[in-house]
Amino acid sequence: MRILVLEDDLGIGDALSSGLSEMGFNVDWLTDGALGLHAPDTAPYEVIILDLGLPNIDGIALLNHWRSRGIKTPVLILTARDALPERVAGLNAGADDYLCKPFAIEEVVARLYALSRRQRGQSNNEIDFGTLTLNRTNKVATLKGETVALNKQEYQLLDLLLSHPNKIFSRADIEESLYSWDDDIESNTVEVYISRLRKKFGKSLIKTWRNMGYQLDEKPKL
């Protein structure tokens, strides 16, 4: 899951960025509201974490701008515990949830998954595709009840495909979902991870569309 964080407090921003990265998220972090105006257009973010007290352009103005442009990415706002007017203003401006400072990284993760489920119309953190199950809470994939070992990129690619089973993803789409701004990407990276998933779950799991990209194809069978 790729996350955009807008937080000008360096301590909080670093804790969020490093903590979420360690838990398997791809994080892009900005400290200035002006830089956030068009940031949601630069990558397929699944959730935006937004501090309201940003320099130059505050969080409420950003929210109003994004929603007026039709950007529907779920937004989790960060506020001080006693800032009730800010929380109300943020929700009224189009935020989907809020979290009071200070917070535990585990609660941030739980709220990110809740917002993602709501956006995708899912009731829990498990995705079933035939005999393949992906648990997004503990980041474990099973095939016919047996755990299949995945590294971070393999898990994220499988999560992406399972979450959008009818969509054809180009190589650029996949790279933008699996990597943040500072990551180095080899030219054949996507093809390598597609090949690995086919070896682990069956060649028919992922279909290649010539000059277009990749899409889930056949469900693994018993």
Rank of each mutant, 00 (worst) to 15 (best):
I3R: 05
L4K: 07
L4E: 10
L4S: 09
L6F: 03
D8Y: 05
D9F: 06
G19C: 02
S21P: 00
G24Y: 09
D28Y: 01
L30V: 00
L30T: 02
T31R: 15
L35H: 06
H38P: 00
A39C: 04
P40V: 08
A43P: 05
P44I: 08
Y45S: 08
Y45N: 07
V47E: 03
L52C: 07
P55S: 11
N56F: 05
I57G: 01
D58R: 00
D58P: 00
A61R: 12
A61L: 05
L62K: 04
N64Q: 15
S68Y: 01
R69P: 03
I71W: 12
T79K: 08
A80C: 06
P85L: 07
R87N: 02
L91C: 09
N92A: 13
D97W: 06
Y98C: 09
C100Y: 00
E106L: 09
E107V: 08
R111Q: 13
L112K: 07
S116Y: 12
R117E: 02
Q119F: 08
R120F: 10
G121W: 08
Q122T: 05
G130P: 07
T131S: 10
N138C: 14
K139E: 02
K139R: 15
A141V: 04
T142C: 08
K144D: 14
E146M: 10
N151K: 04
K152G: 01
Y155I: 01
Q156H: 09
L158E: 11
L160R: 01
L161R: 11
H164N: 15
N166H: 13
K167V: 06
I168S: 09
D173G: 10
W181F: 12
D183C: 06
I185Q: 07
V190T: 14
V190A: 02
V190E: 01
V192Q: 06
V192W: 00
Y193D: 02
S195I: 00
R198H: 10
K199L: 04
K203W: 11
S204A: 14
I206Y: 03
M212R: 15
Y214W: 15
Q215D: 03
Q215K: 13
E218S: 06
K221C: 06
L222W: 05
L222R: 12
